[in-house]
Design a protein around this nucleic acid. Sequence first.
DNA 1: TTGGTATGTTAGTAATTACTTACTTATCAA
DNA 2: TTGATAAGTAAGTAATTACTAACATACCAA
Lengths: 211, 211
Amino acid sequence: MKGESSSVRSGARMSGEDRRLQILRVAVDLFSRKGFRGTTTKEIAEQASVSEAIIFRHFATKRDLYSAIIDYKAAESAELILKTLKNAARRKDDRAVFQGLATDILKIHDQDPTLFRLLLYSGLECHELSAMLFERYAKKVRAFLERYIRQRMADGTFRRIDPKIATHAFFSMISYHALAANLFRSLLPHGNCADVADAFASIFLKGISRL
Amino acid sequence: MKGESSSVRSGARMSGEDRRLQILRVAVDLFSRKGFRGTTTKEIAEQASVSEAIIFRHFATKRDLYSAIIDYKAAESAELILKTLKNAARRKDDRAVFQGLATDILKIHDQDPTLFRLLLYSGLECHELSAMLFERYAKKVRAFLERYIRQRMADGTFRRIDPKIATHAFFSMISYHALAANLFRSLLPHGNCADVADAFASIFLKGISRL
DNA sequence: TTGGTATGTTAGTAATTACTTACTTATCAA
DNA sequence: TTGATAAGTAAGTAATTACTAACATACCAA
């Protein structure tokens, strides 16, 4: 982005399409840090190295821009992690499934803190798209887990329990930790992500086992 | 507050002390709904049925007011739930301890959504007091749980596990659910709070049991 | 080279916002 | 009743903010 910025300053232009995407990305970053009201179009313009008027050429209002980034993030988050988990699930390696999932979720949040922050900000702000983002955020993973738990119950390995509630329990454990790591890192119990993922997966698996 | 409001409008006055507290309470509500930047001193004044100047008589800046409410909420949250749990803990009734705690936490969040919202907003906004609020929010409960888990490990009922991590796991499960209930109620798995508390406590207890 | 067009800017507008100042008035002790 | 004082207000200030309109210019096809 720094490179882009300097080339723009010397007079070179970006296509409309590229510029729109650039603004969107800058906006994701800023809105996720400061929320809707806390982010000014001025700072978005500055970060994108354009004048404010350019923002309004691509987005009719600030509100429209905010909705656009939520859409953008929702679309992005739908493509989550499932690849490696499908192998573990095929082998019915419970430990690999849950520990791998916990690790992946925590890793993703660490690498891209904007998603969760936008989820929280938009939820707190009662943005009309926040529910959609929340749902999209975890839909595939939850569905996958529910199916897996249902299957392992049929196999006799897991005890009788509502797969939705069990999924919710596991997902809650991991997600709250991710949230806390995002907002309050210094206050977390010491222990790296892998240890936390390990411990949480182990508690959960033992907690729903048949034995 | 409605009653207060109408008596003020007819000319009656409130003592400085009472007024300050009223403003504080109004501000808690508004800041927890709209965040710092999203809340104007104008609407605080309106909700308190005073002019804006009165707010600035009690608080030098809007920022000072925000810090004051975080302090206020932090002090309030320190007095949590522990009474009934101490009895269950004395009897070493694991189920009553964890289920009771889960139920109480969820109930408290339901009754006073402002605490968690302020926690999230202040954390997202990187307010200097947010870490303090986060810590205060759960300090006593966490300490209690850690002690209890350590004790039950010594008793041979719970397996070897870092009490901090175990506490964090349990607390995370419940807190994320409370958060989701606060922001995204309509998207939660069906099932009332008691069912969720029950299921989560059961998963957790089984997950850390020695058997 | 020229003209059209898409990208980009500057300068502004109107409304909003946190905060201040000068004045008003309710309250209460003497 | 009077005077002091604390609580309260209206009107304003200066800065900020989202957004607009008019103009400038890079780019590219003919």
